[in-house]
Simulated assay, not measured.
Amino acid sequence: MPAKSKAQQKAAGAALAAKRGDQKVSDLKGASKSMYKSMSEKELDDMASTTRKGKPQHASNG
């Protein structure tokens, strides 16, 4: 599933780095921490690799 905002894509990238062992899990906060716990490495990779072009900084709730 593609990311809906730049912030979501960035959080997925941080969670993916932790899944791969490139970053400490204890360094994760907020959305990236919950993504780490609830998503597979493949799902995180798909979301993190979404192009940022044309994406809003944050997704709207509507």
Rank of each mutant, 00 (worst) to 15 (best):
M47D: 11
D27N: 10
G54K: 11
A31G: 02
M47H: 05
A12G: 03
T51A: 15
H58A: 12
L44W: 00
G30A: 09
A48F: 01
S26M: 12
P2V: 00
K19C: 10
M47C: 08
A7S: 12
S49M: 05
S32I: 00
G13R: 02
K4V: 15
Y36A: 13
D46Y: 03
G30E: 07
A48I: 01
K42E: 14
K24R: 14
S26F: 05
V25E: 14
D46P: 05
A48M: 03
A18L: 06
L28R: 04
M1F: 11
S38G: 14
K53G: 07
S26I: 04
R20S: 14
K37F: 01
S34L: 13
K4M: 11
Q57T: 13
S34W: 08
Q23F: 02
K42T: 15
A7F: 07
A14F: 02
S40C: 10
D22G: 09
M47A: 15
L44M: 02
G21M: 15
Q9H: 03
K37H: 01
S34K: 14
Q9W: 02
K29D: 09
D46C: 07
L44H: 00
L16T: 08
E41H: 07
K4Y: 10
D22R: 13
K29L: 11
K19N: 08
S40V: 15
